[in-house]
């Protein structure tokens, strides 16, 4: 018989951990899923599929919430997000299918492989977080796809006190890259803002603020589709899925408010340090499970 009191304590611990992840993630400039999935995969024995499904849920619901604000303000171009979703979604579905297939058919070796690759991805995330970005790229609306899909937008920039015009450039190349971002999101159960911001800003030349808002709203539709792969396969566990997702999202709301008063630079450096440590830990544990070390 299960120990109900012990179970409640475990659930409370899981909720508290997820809440803390949710609070600190926005202070570090990353989404909750990017911390939740690697930390739980690195430091707990919970099956990778259950963790990844919860990570995807966090990414999906956070992205839906971001959309309720950014679409109205036109900080995130809805038509570009629809177009991006058409590419991100197949990538995310394929990524989720491959992820589930690897852990289902390759057992411990497969779990180790997922952990190792995620550890490497953590270093990529840290590198992309440190990448220099461009605040105001030149707005040139000469891309053919901009005309075809109506991607020319205006929003009111408070700091400049004027309407800012923007449209994506190199749309074809940007969309091509999005497939791989979708794949990574579905495969690892991560949000994808860390990869989407550089693509939108540096490749597609969206203003930094627009790129960040668009990255936060882009993954909802794609990850919602990828989540069905996990749901149909019975890869969700209610207490982890619901308690984890709700706690991270609640924590993110608190974190967003704290951002206005907390010293974000030391927290950001601390989180980057944790991500590096987490990456090393994931690689070590993964290689051990694969029988390499």
């Amino acid at each position: 018989m299960a120990d109900v009191w012990g179970g409640l304590m475990t659930l409370a611990e899981l909720f508290a951990l997820s809440l803390v992840i949710g609070v600190v993630a926005p202070l570090a400039g990353v989404g909750g899923g990017v911390l939740f999935t690697p930390i739980l995969l690195g430091f707990t024995d919970i099956h990778p599929d259950l963790v990844r499904a919860t990570g995807l849920a966090i990414a999906t619901y956070s992205s839906i919430m971001a959309g309720t604000t950014f679409f109205k303000q036109r900080l995130s171009p809805f038509k570009l997000v629809v177009l991006a979703s058409a590419i991100l979604m197949p990538g995310a579905i394929v990524g989720a299918q491959v992820g589930v297939y690897i852990t289902a058919t390759m057992g411990t070796w497969g779990s180790g492989f997922v952990r190792t690759v995620l550890g490497v991805v953590m270093f990529a995330v840290v590198t992309l977080l440190l990448l220099k970005r461009i605040d105001w790229p030149e707005a040139r609306c000469d891309d053919k796809l901009v005309r075809v899909f109506g991607l020319e937008y205006f929003y009111h920039e408070k700091t400049l006190g004027k309407e800012v015009r923007y449209c994506p450039r190199r749309v074809g190349l940007g969309l091509f890259l999005l497939f791989f971002v979708g794949f990574a999101s579905g495969f690892f159960g991560l949000g994808a803002a860390w990869a989407l911001i550089p693509i939108y800003n540096l490749v597609m030349s969206l203003p930094l603020k627009v790129a960040a808002a668009t990255a936060n709203t882009s993954i909802a539709i794609a990850d919602s589709a990828a989540l069905w792969v996990y749901i149909h396969g019975g890869k969700i566990y209610p207490e982890i899925y619901i308690a984890g997702a709700l706690a991270v999202i609640l924590g993110a709301k608190i974190g967003a408010r704290l951002m206005l008063i907390a010293p974000t630079r030391p927290i950001r450096l601390l989180i980057i340090g944790i991500m590096i440590f987490n990456g090393i830990q994931l690689i070590m544990r993964g290689l051990k499970e694969m029988g390499v070390v």
């Binding site: 299960a2 179970g7 024995d45 919970i46 259950l50 019975g234 890869k235 566990y237």
Partner: peptide
């Protein structure tokens, strides 16, 4: 269904629950 839920939670935390139905 607390005992059912916490029994499964124990299994999940220990890594023994790969599929939930």
């Amino acid at each position: 269904a607390p005992e059912h839920a916490f029994h499964q939670l124990e299994q999940a935390i220990a890594g023994g629950l790969a599929v939930w139905r």
